[in-house]
Amino acid sequence: MSVKTLTHLQRLEAESIHIMREVVSEAQKPVMLYSVGKDSAVMLHLAKKAFYPSPPPFPLLHVDTTWKFQEMYKLRDKAAKEAGMELLVYQNPEAKEKGINPFDHGSLHTDMWKTEGLKQALDKYGFDAAFGGARRDEEKSRAKERVFSFRSANHRWDPKNQRPELWRLYNARKNKGESMRVFPISNWTELDIWQYIHLEGIEIVPLYFSAPRPTVTRDGLLLMVDDHRFPLNPGEEPVMRSVRFRTLGCYPLTGAVESNATTLPEVIQEMLLTTTSERQGRAIDHDQAASMEKKKQEGYF
């Protein structure tokens, strides 16, 4: 009988699909966290494959900060519609009321809109399992997190008390009020993600490709002036630069890189030849040593 050698992408795909099917079989009320970035795009595509011909049997949840790029909002609505999935958008009402924003409130912005917003949304809808697009190659504490990451009733992660994960056996049992964060693309690297997007023709936000965009520099980061809320200094004029983004978040917190890469192979080429890691463009990680581990313990994804 002929033997077909599975490539690394085929093995990763099979593993991610297996994980998603386990969650749907064992959780009461799963949801997929959808941030509109490239990792979310891959996760959504895998979900479509996992459950075809059924639509993925869970809704998408976007924990919105109101400060995402406009192009992200556009693709978000389109992608959910095409997948035939319900899209839930949650904005922390307290953050909204207090006008929390990345310009005036620093790390409080992430804390209230994202960390608190996520917890509120999960509690509001009673989701007991939430898919997230985190990868182990992104950051050191993520390298040690389980695929099925157990959270206490108040959403805390205890890195010292994680369930052992053996073979393909995931323990999804939990008591009432407790929940799981599940990371189906844990074992994918940034290159795998790009390669898969290329191979499968997955639609991503155009911001990943280079184009002339209005930018200013702040604290060494090249920021895009995506809407009128961006406070310009007196006399400051945004400069049109040919830029793209390696990672997408809130536009005032996401650094662009100058680039001429307008196709996927060019983007991948640039990534492979670059000399800095992916998350450097994000302000959030530079706060303090072990900052991600701390944020995760508090309930951040």
């Binding site: 890195p159 072990a290 581990e293």
Partner: peptide, 27 residues
């Protein structure tokens, strides 16, 4: 490779960590 804060402080490895690399032939 020692990812958790406690590991870096104590200079020991506590938990399983997964690392990724690729060469021309394999991942």
């Amino acid at each position: 490779v020692d990812g958790l804060a406690a590991e870096r402080e104590q200079g020991i490895t506590i938990d399983v960590a997964y690392r990724f690399f690729a060469t021309e032939k394999r991942k």
